[in-house]
Amino acid sequence: MPRKDELTVQDLLPLAPVTFHMLLLLSEGERHGYALKREMAKQTKGKLNPGPGVLYGSINKMLEQGLIVESEERPASHLDDERRRYYRITPLGRRVAQAEAMRMRQLVEMAEANLGLPEPA
């Protein structure tokens, strides 16, 4: 198994749905854990709604893999809860999310060619 510092983008694929979604959300801007979870649940209509353990387990793993980092910047003090931790996507995280999206595009193209896909409603 390659060491962390030798991990290439391809080694990290395919991503778990929760990870991919979090990277997509963080690409829009910094968020704290609970905000990530709520946004994810909203976007997927509740299909992805990780509990605290799974959520922070994934965050922990993403931090170790270098896909995200903890952000030093905090919102204005009247909006901030100092117990919250904010995360930011890294350049590696961005490349990995792109590569995952490409992989999915290829899958979609293959599905379209083989199965034919109806127009989205």
Partner: peptide
């Protein structure tokens, strides 16, 4: 029940999220 390192690292946000929910 979580291992020590994980608990120390994420105990507070876990509690926070649970209490929010």
């Amino acid at each position: 029940l979580y291992p020590a390192r994980f608990r120390e690292e994420y105990g507070t946000p876990l509690e926070q999220q649970f209490s929010d929910e």
